[in-house]
Amino acid sequence: MSAARRVGLVGWGAIGRVVGTALAAGEIPGATLHRVVDNRPLGDLPAPQSTFEDAVADCDLIVEAAGQSVVREWGARVLRAGTDLLVASTGALTDEDLTKELLTTGPGRVYFTGGAVGGLDLLQAARRMGELHHVELTTTKLPSTLEQPWMDAELLHRMRTADGPVEVLRGTARDIPVKFPKSTNVAASVALAVGDLDAVRVTVVADPAATHTRHVIEAAGTHGSYRFEVCHLPDPVNPATSQVVPHAVLRSLGALAGRSGAIL
């Protein structure tokens, strides 16, 4: 049996706390929590808190659960050090130069978790058969989770006073995650699966009645058509993300650690 993966976890927020607690409790066979990295001083952690540099040097796998800026600043450095990297903040992949760098830098290997959406494996399989000529994502969330500094007073007023769904923005997977850096990683994940940021049309909707976050993916190609809809409860600590996201990270960790029965 191979040695357990030593995991360095970056971020002890809504996602990292769940992931780290599960790792420390031995819930992922073949993976152990070895280091925690966070820019705040933390106490009562299940593993030593350390600098990013020490975590990279001392771990086999870095799990990013702290935001797109971490991927941009540290992603390639982790891989050049020979340490593997699991990315949760896939919104960083709207930067094509960064994506190319992550995919070509080694000897460490980079992996991406699907987060709050499913069907990405099937879209990747369909893409092997031919181009997907229609890919559309509609994301619906509570208005408060979508407010951004760039929004003008008129849009903010419409969102805050709406008594039904309000279309906030349309665009592609290239530009929407930049506009909503904490709320639309799903758009970049879909684009990663289909291989084209500009092919994925994205609509962001604010709905005051959205007790669940909803993502609807519709895709079509010469070999078939696909529709996936997921509805998640928002995380109570950070409503911009869904409760399921840390468990998607844990599923990915289980697959990387070689747990039997994982769906690959």
Rank of each mutant, 00 (worst) to 15 (best):
A3G: 14
L9W: 01
L9Q: 05
L9A: 00
L9G: 08
G11I: 04
G13A: 11
A14L: 12
A14N: 04
I15A: 10
G16F: 07
T21Q: 07
L23V: 06
A25H: 01
L33E: 13
H34G: 13
V36D: 02
L42V: 04
D44C: 05
L45G: 00
P46S: 14
A47I: 04
A47P: 03
S50E: 12
F52D: 11
F52L: 15
A55Y: 11
V56W: 05
I62Y: 05
E64H: 06
V70H: 15
R72Y: 10
G75A: 10
R77H: 15
V78A: 05
G82T: 01
L85D: 00
L86V: 02
K100W: 13
L102T: 00
L103E: 02
L103G: 08
L103Q: 02
T105W: 00
P107A: 01
G108Q: 08
F112S: 06
T113F: 00
T113M: 11
L122P: 06
L122A: 10
L123H: 04
L123M: 07
Q124R: 15
R127E: 07
M129D: 12
M129S: 12
V135N: 05
L137F: 01
T139C: 10
K141D: 09
L146N: 03
E147M: 09
Q148G: 08
P149K: 12
A153R: 14
E154Y: 05
E154V: 12
E154P: 03
L155A: 02
L155W: 06
R160A: 14
E167D: 12
V168Q: 03
T172H: 08
K179D: 10
K182M: 13
V186F: 09
V186N: 04
S189A: 15
A191K: 01
A193E: 10
V194Q: 15
G195M: 01
G195V: 03
A199M: 09
V202D: 05
V204N: 03
A206G: 11
P208V: 00
P208L: 09
A210C: 04
A210M: 08
E218D: 15
A219T: 08
A219H: 08
G221I: 12
G221K: 10
T222A: 15
G224S: 02
S225W: 00
Y226D: 12
H232Y: 05
H232F: 07
H232A: 03
H232M: 03
L233D: 14
P234T: 03
P236Y: 01
N238K: 14
N238T: 14
A240T: 14
A240E: 13
A248D: 08
A248Y: 02
V249S: 08
L250I: 14
S252M: 04
R259S: 15
S260I: 11
